[in-house]
């Protein structure tokens, strides 16, 4: 991860309310990002999946705002 917008990064733990089955700690190394870091990462995604929206809803949606993510 690069960039100056990252305020904190933690490594996921079993207590994160994450995986519904218990797993070894080794496999739980999914970074948990504060919103700013998340926004920075968003610049690298190609699409957004969320609950279905109408045409009017698209304009408000994250998918509709894809070009501005990460800025």
């Amino acid at each position: 991860m690069t960039g100056s917008k990252i305020t904190s990064v933690t490594i996921g733990s079993l207590n994160d309310g994450g995986n519904y089955r218990s797993q070894s700690i080794d496999s739980m190394a999914i970074p948990i990002l504060e919103q700013e870091a998340m926004a920075a990462q968003s610049g690298n995604i190609q699409s957004v999946s969320g609950a279905s929206y109408t045409s009017a809803g698209f304009i408000q949606s994250l998918q509709g705002a894809l070009t501005t993510l990460g800025l």
Binding site: Q35, V48, S49, G50, Q60
Partner: peptide, 26 residues
């Protein structure tokens, strides 16, 4: 491909970023 999943509690933010293998529906 990498895709974001919308945070249902704050739909202008993402809750996760995932590697896309094929298709995803939410």
């Amino acid at each position: 491909f990498k895709v974001g999943i919308t945070n249902p509690h704050s739909p202008k933010e993402l809750t996760a970023i995932v590697a896309l293998d094929g298709c995803i529906a939410t």
